[in-house]
Simulated assay, not measured.
Amino acid sequence: MTTAAHPTRHQLPPAARKAKRRSAALGLLAWAAGISFCLPALWMLLTSFHSEADAATNPPSLAASLTLDGYREFFGGGGGPTPWPPLINSLSASVFSTVLVLVLALPAAYALSIRRVRKWTDVMFFFLSTKMLPVVAGLLPVYLFAKNTGMLDNVWLLVLLYTSMNLPIAVWMMQSFLSDVPVSIIEAAQVDGARLPTVLARVVAPVAGPGIAATALICFIFSWNELLFARVLTGVVAQTAPVYLTGFVTSQGLFLAQLCAASVVVSLPVLAAGYAAQDKLVQGLSLGAVK
């Protein structure tokens, strides 16, 4: 008995060869696009290890000697201010606001997806409409409110602001995630006597865990990166990390190496959170994509 030989590359039909070349070209294009997106971050990382003199050269030198002076200056090694209070303020505002967003968004998404209220589409549009107002348009009223209530330069004001800013997008995301939760398991829990808080905490949250993790990560990133409100409403006590970064651009010049070192350090919490939750993030963002 003889077996037919597998067709070689030259024996493939013309359509198959064309599709293979197209796939290879698309793969190379995807790699080129990915590398181009990473180049600015890689350049910032390399510049952070250069001295100020080497970082300021034009064109910049790739072969310049490496040093940790930028990181030492950032962490106050040269007698300058320490970055720990702004970093702690950013972490506190981001974490507490994210927790509040999840606590408020989970029952709201439950009411809009599983136990739908009347005219729930109008409610969803109302949530979305709150994101249509330019942020700068609400800056003056918020500033006057903070001034009259004595909450200027207070990290808890940022917690409330970040919660209100991230709540609409969190409700929208979690509504789509909770729509995929089987109603039968919720009804079974209710038959066993579980009340709504128990259903949300012990039935809905574990099933929609990837979606909740994706929502939490996105809210954390938005809170950590927010600059406008933090720049206007904080001073010294509640100064956040993005506001602290703007202090490296002074009338004396731009300290590029130190600024790059500070940007790398400030970016690490977001990168670490994204790396730790990457599996949950992919699962959460892909929920509902395949029925």
Rank of each mutant, 00 (worst) to 15 (best):
S61H: 14
Y244M: 12
D69P: 00
T67A: 09
L160W: 04
K280G: 12
W224Q: 10
M44T: 03
H6K: 05
Q278Y: 06
L28A: 15
N148W: 05
S51M: 11
I212M: 12
S51N: 09
I218A: 10
L217V: 04
G211W: 05
G235C: 03
L128V: 05
I35K: 08
S65M: 07
Y71R: 13
L228P: 07
L254D: 09
Q11F: 04
P182N: 03
L287D: 01
S65C: 00
Y162I: 07
L157A: 07
A93N: 01
T8K: 00
E187M: 02
A15M: 05
L45Y: 08
V199N: 03
G253V: 12
S23N: 04
K291F: 06
G211T: 04
V282W: 01
K280D: 07
D122R: 14
T250L: 00
D153H: 04
F127E: 04
S286K: 14
S97T: 10
I88C: 10
L106W: 03
T130M: 15
V117G: 03
P168K: 03
I218S: 10
R231N: 14
T121M: 09
G284E: 03
P210M: 07
G211A: 06
T3I: 08
F125L: 13
L287Y: 13
K119D: 09
F177D: 00
P242F: 01
P168T: 03
M174H: 10
L245I: 09
D192A: 11
A214E: 03
L39K: 08
A64V: 12
T47Q: 10
T130S: 15
G211S: 06
N148S: 15
S263P: 00
N166F: 07
R115M: 13
L100F: 15
A41R: 01
L87I: 01
T215A: 08
A30D: 08
